[in-house]
């Protein structure tokens, strides 16, 4: 395996907005090492979300090459992308995105269900919940949990399938600063302990400061002025 988890070469993304073509990404190239902690920053409209969607394999670039964990994913079809997302990417969202009707454990189990794993799912999900410090909340439903706890469940869900990277989109955006700090600490500790690559999309400089490297975007291009 290469040392690079992410190799992005000349990524371009063009959206068709009615008659107009909007270039969200205009040739972005960078690499991220295995185990690195990187934040992606940029004002709104800079192509930050588009880049995150592309790196998270939720969307395909219009052109350019994207190699994730040694696999070129640029030209994959929907189902292949789904498999890559399932195995290699762990998502943490700003609004947690937990399914409200099922327990924390069942939420964490979800990625394993889609992996086709039938044995030992509960044990692995429980293990992940222990890793985020929620061993006492395993059978609670999201509505019975605080915001910080919900985000911990989401993090457990992100790590349960041992992905190559965690993609966190404003993970502390919906939390107060104290809880936000706890969540950041948790994410950074997971990175330290297990060496999981961590990519945080944020506009909060305080968070960006805690990461080893900052990728700044401006108008769909890397901003190298700083």
């Amino acid at each position: 395996m290469t040392d690079w988890v992410i190799e992005a070469k000349e990524l371009r993304k063009v959206y068709q907005m009615g008659e107009m073509e909007v270039e969200a990404l205009r040739g972005v190239s960078f690499k991220i090492k295995r185990g690195e902690v990187v934040s992606i920053m940029g004002p709104s409209g800079s192509g930050k979300s588009t880049l995150m969607n592309t790196l998270g394999c939720l969307d395909r670039p219009s052109s350019g090459e994207y190699i994730l964990d040694g696999e070129s994913v640029g030209q994959m079809n929907d189902d292949q992308l789904a498999i890559v997302r399932n195995r290699k990417v762990g998502f943490v969202f700003q609004s947690f995105n937990l399914l409200p009707r099922i327990t924390a454990l069942a939420n964490v189990e979800l990625p394993l269900r889609y992996s086709g794993i039938t044995e030992g799912r509960r044990a692995r999900a429980a293990e992940a919940l222990v890793a985020v410090g929620l061993e006492n909340r395993i059978n609670h439903k999201p509505t019975e949990l605080s915001g910080g706890q919900q985000q911990r469940v989401a993090i457990a869900r992100a790590i349960v399938n041992q992905p190559a990277m965690i993609m966190a989109d404003e993970p502390t955006g919906n939390l107060d600063s104290k809880v936000g700090k706890e969540i950041m600490t948790l994410l950074l500790n997971l990175n330290k302990d297990k060496g999981t690559t961590l990519i945080i999309v944020t506009h909060d400089p305080m968070i960006a400061e805690q990461t080893g490297r900052v990728i700044r975007l401006r108008d769909g291009e890397l901003d190298k002025t700083k």
């Binding site: 998270g56 939720l58 929907d78 189902d79 789904a82 498999i83 997302r85 399932n86 195995r87 998502f91 969202f93 995105n97 399914l99 979800l110 990625p111 889609y114 992996s115 869900r157 399938n161």
Partner: peptide, 16 residues
């Protein structure tokens, strides 16, 4: 819709 989006992000295929 959001739930479907989430499930897809977690690796659900079209078929699922």
């Amino acid at each position: 819709t959001r739930e479907i989006g989430l499930r897809k992000a977690l690796g659900a295929r079209k078929r699922d």
